[in-house]
Amino acid sequence: MDIRFTNSRVLVTGGGKGIGAAVAEAFAEAGATVGVHYHQGREDADQLVERLTARGLAAFSLGADLTADEAPSNLVKDFVKLAGGVDVLINNAGGLIRRSPVEDTDDALFRDVVQLNFGSAFAMTRAVIPYLRANGGGSIVNISSVAARTGGAGNAVVYAASKGALTTFSRGVAKEVVADGIRVNSVEPGLIDTAFHANTTPSAFQTMASGVPMGRAGRPADLTGAVLFLASDVHAGYITGQSIGVNGGLWVD
């Protein structure tokens, strides 16, 4: 089985580094035209695009702060203008911002975390639905987190709750748009070795990794199979509203 996205236009938010970059690269390799969205990491996104285009693959970068009011709908418009349409949206942008116990989390931090991890995916989804419907269908894959299940690691409860909202949002919106031929699913990565854990000491990270039944942390490339599979109407056409954990056995429920 070969999953191809020839003639597909795929927009990956937060696509310049980590999981997003691996996913963007895999879609480009599968023949898609890929929009690599970034916010702060312009250099990473541009370097990725350069690497991909040097291999004859189709990719370009787009900058936007997805927590700003009009930014998500403008991003979708810009992508459609450049790519000639949109078929697949990968809502990957997100982050911890910073760790904080609930009692010390002020309203501003709460809003920022929810806005980054859930609000941006909500607004992107809202903006992309009319375009997908006009195409006669399409697919959305949301990159949630194992934290949606566990409630989060220390001092990251709001992050976890916002990922929980994202997983629930995926299930719900899947039903709302099913008649338009649009499928919506989510992937919940476990412990993945990316800059997300930049503030964890190597020995603490190693301790966490050795507790995973598969005996290692995941790599960004470990996520690409699940994302491409779920995005494919040909191969996952009977799956919608689901979330798939990719966590090496760290969390099974």
Binding site: K175, P213, F229, T240, V246
Partner: peptide, 28 residues
């Protein structure tokens, strides 16, 4: 077929312990 081949292939090498619904959205 698609889910089976995905789970049988190297594309799912970090995916384990999951019970994956293939139900047309029934469980939503």
């Amino acid at each position: 077929d698609g889910l089976l081949i995905f789970l049988a292939s190297a594309a799912s090498d970090y995916l384990t312990g999951q019970v994956i619904m293939l139900d047309g959205g029934w469980t939503t």
